[in-house]
């Protein structure tokens, strides 16, 4: 069990200053995520799910307590180390895709590999592999404005997965998609999770996403309200 532990959160608290007072976004969070999990942080707006996702993605730091992601204590990382962690180990999927509009599908997926200075031949192979996972090898030269919303999100998934990160963080990935596209995306991510053993953590309140999760962590007012593991899926 210890060997497979990817994330350990202990007594985590996150406070934001609001005028002279403080708003406590997260309090007393204790969680452990193992490798290959397909888990979701579920809760209404303001429950703290995006804040927790930010901390796990080294985009923010805890006010107190500890979050250890892939062996790195997030609170102790400087900006450069945090960027390195994101570059090498983490993938992000956003609600509104956030693709670079002037670059082709191939170039968008290639971008994380450029940051890692991977040689061209290997890069090309990895990009084509990633596009094959999401079924977009026929759209290599297309640009984001020429794609549907579902296709854009599949490109975003390929971009997040191309470097085979240990952990993918997805913030409301289906919020801009219709039901058919949402299921397509979720099935793609579920397949990648199974085949590549990549850990997926979602922040969501979308029932369609929730129905695919194998672990559901319900947040309410910054606390873990319930932590359910569904082993049947």
């Amino acid at each position: 069990m210890e060997i497979n532990t990817m994330i350990t959160i202990r007594n985590l608290e996150k406070r934001f200053p609001v005028g002279k007072d403080e708003f406590i976004a997260l309090r007393d969070i204790n969680l452990v995520f193992g490798a290959g999990e397909f888990a979701g942080l579920i809760g209404p707006s303001g429950s703290g799910k995006t804040t927790l996702l930010n901390i796990l993605g080294s985009l923010d730091v805890p006010s107190s307590g500890e979050a250890v992601v892939l062996g790195y204590s997030i609170g102790n990382l400087n900006a450069k180390q945090a960027a390195k962690l994101r570059k090498e180990k983490l993938g992000f999927i956003f609600q509104s895709y956030n693709l670079l509009a002037v670059h082709t599908v191939f170039e968008n997926v290639e971008f994380p590999l450029l940051l890692l200075n991977i040689p061209k031949d290997e890069r090309n192979r990895m990009v084509m592999d990633a596009l094959e996972w999401v079924g977009l090898t026929g759209k290599v030269r297309s640009k984001p404005p020429q794609l549907s919303g579902g296709e854009c999100q599949r490109v975003a998934i390929a971009r997040a997965m191309v470097k085979k990160p240990s952990l993918v963080l997805a913030d409301e990935p289906t919020a801009n998609l219709d039901a058919a596209n949402s299921h397509h995306i979720l099935k793609t991510m579920e397949t990648l999770n199974r085949e590549l053993k990549t850990t997926f953590i979602f922040a969501t309140h979308d029932d369609k996403v929730i129905s695919y999760l194998r672990r559901k962590i319900f947040l309410l007012d910054g606390r873990v309200d319930k932590d359910e593991v569904i082993s049947a899926r």
Partner: peptide, 10 residues
């Protein structure tokens, strides 16, 4: 923002 999230240094 995207580039920063992808891990490019500021």
């Amino acid at each position: 923002g995207i580039r920063l999230a992808m891990g490019e240094e500021k």
